[in-house]
Design a protein around this nucleic acid. Sequence first.
DNA 1: GATCTAGGTCGAACCGATTCGGCGAACCGG
DNA 2: CCGGTTCGCCGAATCGGTTCGACCTAGATC
Lengths: 338, 338
Amino acid sequence: MNIGEIARRAGVARSTVSYALTGKRPVSEETRQRIQAVIEELNYRPNAAARALKEGRTRTIGLVIPPASRRLTDMQLGFVATVVDAAARADLDVLLSPSGGEHERSFERVVTGRRVDGVILMEIRLEDDRVTRLRQSGLPFVGIGRTSHPEDMTWVDVDYETLISQCVHHLADLGHRNIALVNRSAELVAAGYGPGHRAQAGFTRAVAQRDLHGVHACCADDAQAGLSCVERLLAEHPELTAIATINETAITGMYRALAQAGLAVPKDFSIAGVAAQNLAENLDPPLTSADVPTIELGARAVELLIQRIADPGSPHRHLLAAPPISLRGTTGPARPRA
Amino acid sequence: MNIGEIARRAGVARSTVSYALTGKRPVSEETRQRIQAVIEELNYRPNAAARALKEGRTRTIGLVIPPASRRLTDMQLGFVATVVDAAARADLDVLLSPSGGEHERSFERVVTGRRVDGVILMEIRLEDDRVTRLRQSGLPFVGIGRTSHPEDMTWVDVDYETLISQCVHHLADLGHRNIALVNRSAELVAAGYGPGHRAQAGFTRAVAQRDLHGVHACCADDAQAGLSCVERLLAEHPELTAIATINETAITGMYRALAQAGLAVPKDFSIAGVAAQNLAENLDPPLTSADVPTIELGARAVELLIQRIADPGSPHRHLLAAPPISLRGTTGPARPRA
DNA sequence: GATCTAGGTCGAACCGATTCGGCGAACCGG
DNA sequence: CCGGTTCGCCGAATCGGTTCGACCTAGATC
């Protein structure tokens, strides 16, 4: 069921079938219809591998995600979903590649076997080997996230630094003077995970600007960790009245710790954060947060990648999102504890 | 940077390079090392498209997921993660294909363009066009889920019928006599979504066996819907004292509705369900549920698919999982309301 | 010493598409 | 009636691998 078979049955040359399909050269209406009929009868579809071989492109993009073992955050899920969606809309297929740890081979295959025309890279570290590898391979790529030298790559990212700073300012405006930042896991931050570092930078900056007392805590990405982390914070820092966080996954645990400590939100304690809108809205109570526009960012990443594939020499572009904070009722006037 | 270049620099024929790489024919140790040196120097990797073209297989599997627009349930996420993981372990790449609605083209491309060696199909309907298409295309595939004629396809599935039945029996053992089943969304059930129908069947059966009063309700897949659904149930059926559910995503909303109605769980009201373990454990309170072994099922699906690709004529195999119910404290003795 | 076997290598065909140069027929103006 | 275009189509080369048959050499067998 190859192009030769179609050509034979339609009584034309293989090249004519090809031209009839791609329209790259004129084919008489009559011939085209004859070919089309045969194609539909046999339900023929060109072999992707053969086409890729000849054309030098695969019409596929790679999406490099954090290792599958770790549960993805709601935000990451949002990115994956919209990237897949946007790619499908552009008639591109998406090859999923878990990276990190034991899955190094998968990444290598994708990058170096010319299986994809370009790559979207998620969860980028400040210093990231994968970025280096991609750069030297010459494969077009777009980051969702950025390294510490973001000028010479194309990316979209969430401006955690500004957003956490705004959260702190918002809390300070409400009278809070003792605020904790609940970050992502210690390993992730230690590994140079960008959002973790930038959130911390924004936190430190805002705390200094408003002359506050700030506490920084890392917390693994699950509810249980959120619970014990906040339990510990409350015990060790009785002066705390508010939390700012970028750790979506731990939030339900934080809520639980506060409830168990007899602290009502937002009456006794305030929380503000950066999260996927979908998650923030569905929490109980709904979280006051900067809603990351995953749909727009994911779609833009695909768009930028398509441009980059079309013209690899074009200048790098960047998109830094700093959505406004949606007040949903987990922040209120400060009220001293104990 | 193709095999010819390597051959030239190593002073051998292209076929020798190929044999050195695949080991399908003996190559002298000396030659092999010379070739290996050149390969490493140039960082050569065989072109995937060329290999796929000649070998007739792509070393890639397709994973057909529900449309990306809809948020995946925790269970579905678990499946995706473990499928990707298991595939990577077997040195297979995963091509993601959102199906349904506007993404028909994506599915067609994957199935008919010979882009993949096999397909894993998620969220299968009782009558499913995609199964029909796959069957007639001759492409090996494995379902996570099954149609109403499950004998002639290979699948792994969760035994919702048995599990919901067990939930009802468990509740009945605790003295509950008026129980509601909160199903997935009405559209999904109307579209013939298997788990929805099978859960309903199991519910009806158990209710009859124990001579209970059962109420069936559909509920969209989000917390808000869970809230309003349970609000409505409580209002229209004041006799209800327990809920059984397969709608993971709506559970937090159900909790909220009960809390707002002043009903404590499990003192005043019981809930039992089928859910991803990860989710059930992290709810507050943790949900008494049958924990679906997504890791095992996902990995088995990949395993079955690999077998099927190796030997397409082999008999179909099935795996129906009915994990025991983990008692986590959302069910207790019945206590009449009002 | 002739024959056989096995190891090691080469050259050519092949997978299924795309694409380029060219060829014949129809058509045009002069 | 002739030279030049244009249109529609064909044939062959090509992409980068794998694989099969054939060949050569060296060592084993009798």
